[in-house]
Nucleic acid binder design. Structure first.
Lengths: 338, 338
DNA sequence: CCTGGCACTCGCCCTGTCCGAGTGCCAAAC
DNA sequence: GTTTGGCACTCGGACAGGGCGAGTGCCAGG
């Protein structure tokens, strides 16, 4: 096990490197921190830390920089989440309080996170798996063409076109609409499939095809709707990444455009507790030089979605984690109130 | 006025510079193009072109590069919009055909444009101002509580809750729904107000309050939800910008995050005809080293929204314009069909 | 008006040198 | 055993100078 002082040295290295973005040497370390020992001692400690893989040298005779493993140790053992300052808290509150609807809450949260952390922010929309159906509407646009409108209790509306296999009369339509609604209104999305399973059977033979079509479109819509959306922002902060731009930034931008990747990224975070993925811990290869700090948020006890930030592995972990946690908590409150 | 050959020289310079990204000299020009004159002549022409401000030298004794003014002349007089290749057309069709709803159409359009042009794509959601009403639906959720659902010809759906001043019977509801639809279906949003103006009068006194309420909510929706949204994609293509990265790319990313800026940018484009804004022609200062190619698209004759791409001033204008136009046309078709 | 020739300019690249931060090791001190 | 100061060494970065070549402008002749 590493001695107390060596951990202290690692902490100092991480802090200095994050601040200066330059490899940090033994002399500079002793000058900037009160370690109470001489540079030579620090050098020995550094050699040990390097031996164990916590730090590395970009080239011989340069200072040391933390490795992913070093950052990992840092966030696990050495870093305290830094609470936000009073003004920052107030900024969060006043900024989020003026949101008018769900879209607005999410949009504002993204901006806020991006500003506070000066990194790329990612916010997942509250998941709909627990939503219920408020109403299903069917409209006849043409003899064999229907429109399905699905309204959820969260106020979201989805609509789909349906081409029917056979013309479908107004009375049949009204009938289907009524029966459909009586069965599914107020029920959870996940329960709908079995609730409508036997519906076609109760119709005339000639209409069964259409009814089945309508139902399958409905089920499809429910699945798609449950699919999780997200919003990102603060990509301009990527320009602060480093000097070796194009190569670093490009795969990150590409990854950020793949919602699937991001969803997986956030999804890996455990429910509600904060998760930090550092560098190569990220599965996606475009993100091996970035870290992801994510946490769940929700209106009640359980997390309904995740939010977080993506930044260089060389980031201010305590500050970032503090900001992410604070924002998540307040967004949860906002959602609970509305 | 510039002679025919000088214009030809300018065209050659633009083409070469776009291709190589390097200042182009007189000798290289005569080698790569059949101008039928010697380098010396070209040099004279270049001197003239520079005198007029169409081209410039980055430093003495380097080749020339086009100025914004040069690009302007190029797109106005020298460039023919390049039609897409067969495979490209087919790719557009098959890619867009599989879209399931409006969101999907827009999302796919963004990806498509970004891929085809290898630049940043911006697509505005079909605006509601020029849209027409496809259907208005009224649902009774509770004795004195209605839901209004508005469906536009572009496939967009908006919904609002209405608290009625008095209970409203099912028959009255059906009556209102029918009359409302018969008046406004197929009409433009802007025409709706006067079309429904006298509607309350034709109802029983006791229902008039509710009818008025419904109408005012409808009108409110038409106005409020004119708010325009957009989607962007292909930001990773920004990395192909140039070598002088951070400084160039940062303001662009920032501008792209400001929906307001982008909307204004697209808005400047004239109705339906393609607009190209080059470098400093863009009002926003973060975009002075970019060009914007935008065009309106719509389901019918007139444009309901804009789409376009943002790229470096040094872009392949004919190809980009071709792609933008082709995509806009096909998206228009898709919207018209659905 | 075009062309070939010519002298000139100037940025880029390559090389060599210097400098200093930082290291590792070691022997002495605590 | 750990810490410390000393010392030799390494290596990357900054800087300066020189050669190169693309490209130019100008001019005299076709």
């Amino acid at each position: 096990m590493l001695s107390e002082r060596r951990l202290e040295v690692l902490r100092a290295i991480v802090q200095d490197y994050v601040g200066t973005e330059e490899p940090v040497g033994s002399k500079a370390l002793t000058e900037r921190h009160q370690l109470g020992v001489s540079p030579a001692t620090v050098r020995n400690d550094m050699a040990a830390l390097e031996e164990e893989g916590f730090i590395a040298q970009p080239h011989t005779s340069a200072g040391r920089i933390p490795t992913d493993k070093g950052y990992r140790l840092f966030v696990d053992k050495l870093a305290a989440v830094k609470p936000l300052s009073g003004p920052e808290r107030r900024a969060i509150h006043s900024f989020l309080d003026s949101a008018v609807d769900l879209d607005d809450v999410v949009a504002r949260t993204v901006r806020l996170l991006a500003q506070l952390t000066r990194q790329v922010a990612v916010v997942q929309y509250p998941s709909l798996t627990r939503s219920t159906v408020r109403h299903v509407e069917l409209l006849s646009l043409a003899p064999a063409r229907l429109m399905l409108v699905l309204i959820t209790d969260t106020g979201r509306v989805e609509q789909r076109m349906i081409d029917c296999p056979a013309p479908f009369g107004e009375t049949s339509l009204a009938d289907l609409r009524a029966r459909l609604n009586s069965r599914v209104v107020g029920r959870r999305f996940t329960d709908v499939p079995q609730l409508v399973q036997d519906l076609p059977e109760s119709f005339e033979t000639e209409d069964r095809g259409t009814v089945s079509t309508v139902l399958s479109v409905l089920l499809e819509t429910l699945v798609e709707e449950t699919e999780e959306r997200l919003m990102i922002g603060g990509t301009a902060n990527l320009t602060r990444f480093g000097h070796d731009f194009p190569l670093t930034i490009r795969p990150v931008l590409e990854a950020l455009e793949e919602q699937v990747v991001l969803l997986k990224l956030l999804g890996e975070a455990k429910d509600s507790s904060m998760t930090v993925r550092i560098g190569h811990e990220n599965a996606h290869e475009g993100l091996t030089s970035t870290s992801v700090v994510a946490v769940g948020y929700g209106s009640g006890d359980e997390a309904v979605a995740k939010l977080g930030v993506v930044g260089p592995t060389r980031m201010d972990y305590p500050g970032t984690m503090g900001a992410v946690r604070a924002v998540a908590r307040y967004v949860g409150q906002i959602l609970a109130e509305s």
